[in-house]
Design a protein around this nucleic acid. Structure first.
Lengths: 233, 233
DNA sequence: CAGAATCCCATTCGATACTG
DNA sequence: CAGTATCGAATGGGATTCTG
């Protein structure tokens, strides 16, 4: 009874020859899992959510990923049309990986996953956090109803990464880049102290490494716009 | 140089001893992946989205999953607090798996993943579909703006599974169960012909296995409320 | 630094057989 | 039906090395 037939190597149903896993299921969610369900894939997309990054940037934001796995995942994300590889102009010989327009479309799904999981009693917000995670958490947890009439712009500097945030008319903007004349500036070597300020509502003095400058009142208003979901259990 | 140390078995950081994968990342999305990022896990949650199911029901809705993997995934989902196991009252000796309240909270994230992936040009909507997938796709793709003043209730029967849908005041209800005096009834041995009707806008006569009864005008109004996202490429 | 290529073990998976 | 037990095969992915 060893006529095992089944040498068919897991049907390359989906055009782009995906290797390992597929569900043979028309459900969009199942297809999403074929695209980004492998380990690390979705976190790579998260890291790219604020613009193109280089290979080593990605490794920096994803502690624990190996070069091999990062290479493989970038390849399959590229095949899937989620990521695009771009050569920077000659002076800088580097290449960057960036999301396609459709890739950016995954933002809502990523945020909803995060919002849901953050309400687990087992979620540990004290683990390390990449700069991109921090900024994406702002987009996720911002509550426009708490913004009132706040109009504030801030510069966020995490290590060498520069971001800015703006709150106006109950809306948040959070992007990579600089802002002219920020109302406040938060600077830290890593994301954690900034998360401690915004989510832990800790006083800046209590957060080692965090440098705060500018309008404290506007900063307080900004911080007040964010809160983690309450735990379920 | 073989002093490999590293016998540490992938740190059970998260209280509940998760086995394989973890990211050591405070990001909610990363934590979500620890909860439901293993193969099949999220699809099991999807299958439970319309109420408790038995082991064999789940196998039926997840073609390709093995008993071993299903057992393992149910265990880890239970440890994570997403799934609960319940013994049915004595007469029926069976046990059912059902989502906890928090587990049901994953619905938005699941739908957003599906909505996003369905706009991939590589998505193949002609693959088989479980009854739960079909019903969840209704909740995902319903567009209240197209409902106008439609007020309609329908019974959906897929094999032995009974669901009902209602559209009223631009809102959709889609649940497992019966409805009294439906305006229309759709019945088929599998979900596909119903998907062909609703999303493919195919005439019922062209769909083998599909039985349609009731008010055709209301059915047409219902069908008109749904459309797949347009492909990006 | 960016990434390709090897090596190799731990894990995981699916198939089958078995059990209450 | 609702799983459990076992086994072989495939894969995953970490570490290391090499190259432009």
């Amino acid at each position: 009874m060893k006529l095992q037939k089944e040498t068919i190597k897991r049907s390359p149903v989906v055009s782009s020859g995906r290797h390992g896993k597929w569900y043979d299921d028309a459900c969009g969610t199942a297809f999403a899992l074929e695209l980004i369900g492998e380990r690390w894939s979705l976190l790579i997309v998260r890291e790219l959510m604020f613009g193109g990054r280089r290979f080593s940037d990605l490794r920096g934001g994803l502690p624990g990923i190996s070069a091999k796995v990062l290479t493989e995942r970038l390849e399959s994300l590229e095949r899937a049309g989620i990521v695009r590889r771009r050569q920077l102009p000659p002076p800088t010989a580097a290449q960057v990986y960036e999301l396609t327009e459709w890739g950016y479309g995954a933002e809502t799904a990523i945020k909803e996953l995060g919002r849901w999981a953050a309400s687990s009693p087992d979620h540990d917000p004290t683990l390390p956090l990449s700069p991109a995670s921090l900024m994406l958490s702002f987009r996720t947890m911002f509550d426009g109803r708490r913004a009132g009439g706040l109009d504030a712009g801030g510069a966020i500097r995490v290590g060498a990464d520069r971001f800015f945030v703006k709150v106006a008319k109950g809306r948040l903007t959070a992007e990579r880049g600089e802002i002219e004349e920020p109302d406040f500036t938060l600077e830290a070597p890593a994301a954690m102290p900034i998360a401690g300020l915004v989510y832990g509502k800790a006083p800046p003095e209590a957060l080692p490494g965090l440098a705060v400058t500018g309008d404290r009142a506007k900063l307080a208003g900004y911080v007040d716009c964010f809160h983690l979901p309450k735990k379920v259990a």
